[in-house]
Amino acid sequence: MCLAVPGQVVAIVDGDQQLATVDLSGVRRSVSLACLVTPDRPIEQWVGRWVVVHAGFALEELDVAAATETLTWIDRLTTPA
């Protein structure tokens, strides 16, 4: 129900329309940041950040630290085989 792919905001396309270019591992598209931009987090602050894109919209910011935590959890957990 929700195919979404991580990508990095690389440039602002249209501040008023809240559109920015997102690079999805080599595939670039103009994406709406309407679900992310707020008065205290204007569009300019989003360049360089990682987001997850669904149907042309950035659904939410991707927390890079949390991603690393998820990836390394198995090492902290592994019980002797």
Partner: peptide, 8 residues
């Protein structure tokens, strides 16, 4: 779509 797509 569900609540993922509805906001878009």
């Amino acid at each position: 779509g569900f609540e993922t797509t509805a906001p878009a």
